[in-house]
């Protein structure tokens, strides 16, 4: 019998045929994070993923979109129905954003990217079209392939199509900033902030929701410090650090502070946009063991995105890689 998730989209089949079953290969999206996870091997064939919004159901809060579609195009379509996704708006394609796995600065309000991917269709290393997850907003049918695909840099499969959870755009939003507030007191008084940034001196808060709630939040914040309306977030430095939220306290002019340089930190989240790159973090050997096995299971010949790895190469193996 035919499985309910059987694929009958000729566009995807064409893409799978293009990937084929041998030879090093990679998919290019917007190339906004092209060198993320290492440089692509020079001999890799570079192709593009199919484009287009396949189905959008605002009353299901889901959208089916092909990987090559730009995030901008997707969000423009969703905006007409008053919805959005957790995909970061920094240029680039839906597939690229999912494979890189970065959250945008508004992650507090929009949710984690990794939780937003409901179903993924990808081409496997041997050229087969594979479906992981399912089309509904809630699903525990079998192993959760979408989770390992987000942030996998295309090393396990080449994403062709995704079903992504959408969310309503709140009725209103407002940016306010203060230079005399304790940024770490803000999360305690705001139930669901859209974003809280701190650059060592200025705290910027994005409030969103019903106007009456945004006003109430602003009034509560006014008791903590003097806030003024601003146009948006401050300019975000190029590099990203990932810290536990509590470590953001250590930044700024403090002894033994992490050497982030100039920074804009997401308070309550732990992402720090910084002028300096984050030093390589040590990786638990068992995490590396599972990750290596995962790669070998999905791509035994190493043809998918060769040269790229989700974990930093170990120094003594760097040459070999």
């Amino acid at each position: 019998m035919t499985p309910s998730l059987a694929i009958d989209d000729p566009v995807l089949s064409t893409f799978a045929a293009e990937v084929g079953s041998n030879g090093p290969i990679a998919v290019a999206g917007g190339r906004t994070r092209w060198d993320h996870g290492g440089s692509l091997a020079a001999d890799a064939r570079i192709i593009e993923a199919p484009q287009g919004i396949v189905e959008y159901r605002p009353d299901e809060m889901t959208v089916t979109v092909r990987a090559g579609t730009s995030v901008e195009e997707l969000h423009a379509e969703l905006a007409e129905a008053g919805q959005r996704t957790a995909l970061p708006e920094r240029g680039g394609s839906v597939g690229g954003a999912l494979m890189v796995g970065e959250n945008g600065p508004f992650v507090a309000g929009r949710g984690l990217l990794r939780a937003s991917l409901l179903q993924v269709r990808y081409v496997s290393a041997d050229g087969a079209l594979v479906t992981g997850g399912g089309p509904t907003v809630k699903n525990v049918s079998g192993f959760d392939i979408p989770r390992i695909m987000v942030g996998s840099l295309g090393t396990l499969g080449l994403v062709a199509e995704a079903i992504i959870r959408t969310n309503p755009v709140p009725a209103t939003h407002r940016f306010i900033a203060s230079s005399d507030v304790d940024p770490f007191a803000v999360p305690d008084v705001i139930l669901r902030p859209g974003c809280i940034t701190w650059d060592g001196s200025t705290t910027t808060v994005m409030l969103e929701g019903h106007e009456v709630d945004v006003d109430a939040d602003a009034a509560r914040l006014a008791e903590l410090g003097s806030f003024a309306d601003v146009d948006g977030l401050p300019e975000l430095p190029a590099h990203r650090w990932s810290l536990p939220p509590s470590d953001v306290r250590l930044l700024g002019a403090k002894p033994n502070a992490p050497a982030v340089g100039a920074f804009v930190a997401l308070v309550g989240v732990g992402t720090v946009y910084a002028s300096n790159p984050q030093p390589q973090r040590s990786i638990d050997p068992t995490v590396r063991l599972i990750s290596d096995r995962m790669k070998n299971q999905f791509d035994p010949t190493g043809r998918l995105n060769p040269g790229r790895s989700v974990l930093p190469f170990e120094p003594n193996k760097a040459g070999a890689a």
Binding site: G101, E102, N103, V107, R114, R147, I148, V150, G151, S152, L156, R240, S242, L243, P244, P245, D247, L266, V269, G270, T271, R281, I283, V287, I290, S291, M294, V310, L311, P312
Partner: peptide
Amino acid sequence: LDAEPDGYDL
């Protein structure tokens, strides 16, 4: 506990 741990989402 950090915002975006390295590697696959094991």
